[in-house]
Write a protein that binds this DNA or RNA. Structure first.
Lengths: 120, 120
DNA sequence: TGCCGACGATTACACGCGTAAACGACGCTG
DNA sequence: CAGCGTCGTTTACGCGTGTAATCGTCGGCA
């Protein structure tokens, strides 16, 4: 079940709120994307075909909800990247961002807490 | 300069050792990929077209070397993912792996050291 | 009750990618 | 000096994707 880039944008909408009618999805996306209504419908249909979302009849229309969990999607995407670029290990990735000064104060504080928690 | 998945495999070979003749690349990949020689040649050519690698004539053949730095590629790929999935922040990503128990002892130790270094 | 508008479904189409075979030139070997 | 093998170059092709337009149907309003 491979979700494309554009499809994942639609998934995001549904992960945030569901179930939603196609129209609602279009409305939400109107703010962030340039997409025509037809485009969103195509994406919804492809997601349906892939089994990533489900549709339940609501009168004349459908209400869509995610089947694929956001967690699972995030996990698979990030694991793939980690494997491809950092030999599957987290520390090198963090180090990479360290060296590029991409860690905010907040990141550092949170990382510190995470590590402390892990040690107990 | 967008590098596809398959192309990045070829890049990897060149990042590890360069310059290399097409044949050498094929030889290295023979161990890990199922690819025909022709496929590797296509990928080298596409990379040339994209400017991600350069070719220098060596008698009758070419020697290829990366132009795009591995560091830059890794940075752009991982930033893209981070932005898409974790709102651009590193800590949530690490937390994600924490919760999924994907951190090795070694990861934890290294992260700890990274954090300590950052605080000084 | 007939037409219009709203939905979902179907169809379209160009482009990049994975995967490769075919082609063409050139130098070495017999 | 004529083939043959070896490179790089060109061409191929099906599939997924981004991006839509068009079609067909059904319910509500005039």
């Amino acid at each position: 079940m491979q979700i494309s880039e554009a499809e994942s944008v639609v998934m995001n909408v549904l992960w945030n709120r569901h179930p939603l009618a196609a129209d609602d999805v279009v409305a939400v996306l109107a703010g962030e994307q340039h997409w025509q209504e037809a485009t969103v419908k195509t994406l919804l249909n492809r997601l349906l075909g892939k089994g990533a979302i489900a549709a339940e009849k609501d009168g004349r229309r459908y209400l869509y909800r995610p089947v694929l969990a956001r967690e699972d999607y995030v996990a698979s995407e990030s694991t793939t990247l980690l494997d491809r670029l950092f030999d599957g290990r987290v520390a090198p990735l963090v180090q990479h961002f360290c060296e590029r000064r991409k860690l905010s104060k907040r990141d550092i504080a949170e990382l510190k807490r995470l590590i402390e928690d892990l040690e107990r």
